[in-house]
Amino acid sequence: MPVQRADAQRNHALLLAVAAEAIATYGADASLEQIARTAGVGSGTVRRHFPTRQALLEAVFRERVETLCSRARELTGRADTRAALLEWLRVVTAGAATIRGLATALTRDRAAAAHEYCCTAQLTEAGAPLVRRAADDGALTPGVTIDDLITLITGIALATEHSPSPAAEADRLLDLAVTGLSPSQG
């Protein structure tokens, strides 16, 4: 990637800061025109830096997604593979439910064409070793994939992001998904 001029670098950083605030307030469909006005630039400048809304969302959430991916890597070596996988799923679910717009970005990622950076692809790559290890240990139902789990937690996050306590509600629903609907028949 070519080095940007100083003013272009400032515009990029300013647009990211303004977009992060707008998305936190209005969600993933925050007005691009309002972001441009607030940043004091034209809408063409926004489009030059972020050719699509998805590119803007990915840039806004990059650091947060990288933190979630880092957590997956930290947990991969744990002896209890089921506990490691569940801990990571809880962290991702809570993040997606409480970071306004992230769940929507993850949903759109799945339908969008390949990008240089894709939030869902990053989470999938980071979580795959946890899923593989849990499956190898018999701690995961056969056939469950990382894609299944990302879809599940994204759905839970979308369903809870507007609740009064999104992280707690998302965790409760994840528990329900993990334990099932019926008590054990032991």
Rank of each mutant, 00 (worst) to 15 (best):
I146F: 07
G180D: 13
A39D: 08
L106F: 14
A111E: 15
G186D: 12
R37V: 08
L106N: 04
L158D: 10
A36H: 02
T38S: 11
R53E: 06
V131I: 06
R73G: 05
A19E: 00
A30V: 03
T38G: 01
A19Y: 00
E21H: 03
G143S: 08
L16G: 02
L173S: 09
E58L: 04
S70C: 03
S184I: 06
D29G: 09
A79N: 01
C118N: 13
A177I: 14
A126T: 04
T120C: 09
L56K: 03
E33R: 13
N11T: 10
R37Y: 05
L123M: 13
G42H: 03
L86E: 14
A20M: 02
R132G: 09
R48M: 05
E161C: 04
P183H: 05
L176Q: 08
E116F: 00
C119A: 15
T107N: 02
T160E: 11
D137W: 02
V91A: 12
R48F: 03
R48I: 04
E58S: 11
A55N: 01
G77Y: 01
F50H: 05
A128S: 15
T93I: 01
V144P: 10
D7C: 08
A126N: 02
V144I: 15
D109I: 05
Q185K: 06
F61V: 09
H115G: 10
A103G: 06
I150T: 15
L106W: 03
D171M: 04
V178M: 07
A167V: 03
L176H: 15
A167D: 09
L89A: 01
G77S: 01
R37T: 07
L57F: 03
R132Y: 06
P166M: 10
E169K: 10
A6D: 13
A170G: 10
A177L: 09
V3L: 07
L68A: 08
A97I: 07
I35Y: 01
D147T: 14
G127S: 11
L56E: 11
R37C: 04
A168E: 14
V41W: 00
R62G: 03
G143P: 14
L149G: 11
G77N: 01
I156R: 02
A167P: 04
R100P: 00
T45E: 02
P166H: 14
L174K: 02
T160R: 05
L130H: 02
T45W: 00
L174R: 09
M1R: 12
W88N: 09
A55S: 11
G186R: 13
S182E: 15
R132D: 14
D136C: 10
S43A: 04
L14M: 00
R47N: 01
L174H: 00
T38M: 04
A105N: 04
Q9V: 12
